[in-house]
């Protein structure tokens, strides 16, 4: 099996894992939309935008999840995943400086995680996305080398 094929399979696997995460969290939010909105209304800095964010966050997650499943858009979607997870992590870290009693507005079973656990969880998926980006770059370099040699 060539290196390019291995990289391609790894990128595909990471994309699949990330898309499961985004579909899971988006669905969890949409299932309990009222709860999600009321949680956002109590979040520091975000409360003025709660109504708008109630729809935007799950919609963005679903769009990214969809793009991750389409080969043509996978690279863009992996960058978007890294950006979105990074934004969530920075926000959680900022909130931690403010209070330890603010309810989580994350979806499903993730709402049972503590803030520190949640940061660790996000960092793990960010690391996966980062690995995928590195693999995409390596794959592109190999493709360029192949083109040069032929």
């Amino acid at each position: 099996m060539s290196k390019t094929t291995t990289y391609q399979k790894l990128i595909y696997a990471i994309g699949l894992v990330l898309s499961v995460l985004f579909i899971y969290t988006a669905t969890s939010k949409l299932v309990q939309l009222d709860t999600f909105q009321s949680q956002l209304e109590r979040m520091p800095y975000l409360s003025p935008y709660a109504t708008w964010l109630t729809w935007t966050v799950p919609f963005t997650e679903l769009v990214i999840a969809g793009l991750l499943l389409i080969e043509k858009h996978r690279t863009l979607a992996i960058y978007a995943s890294l950006f979105l997870l990074g934004f969530f992590t920075i926000y959680i870290t900022a909130v931690l400086q403010f209070s330890d009693s603010i309810p989580c507005s994350c979806g499903g079973v993730l709402s049972m995680l503590g803030w520190q656990d949640h940061i660790l969880f996000n960092l793990t998926f960010m690391a996966l996305a980062f690995c995928a980006i590195l693999l995409i770059r390596k794959q592109n370099k190999l493709k360029l080398l192949d083109q040069d040699t032929t």
């Binding site: 898309s19 899971y24 669905t27 499903g108 709402s111």
Partner: peptide
């Protein structure tokens, strides 16, 4: 993957009350 994620979301629906 889609079915798994949606199924998991419904299966782990959070029923905790604030």
């Amino acid at each position: 993957a889609i079915i798994l994620a949606v199924g998991l979301a419904f299966a782990t629906e959070d029923n905790s009350v604030d």
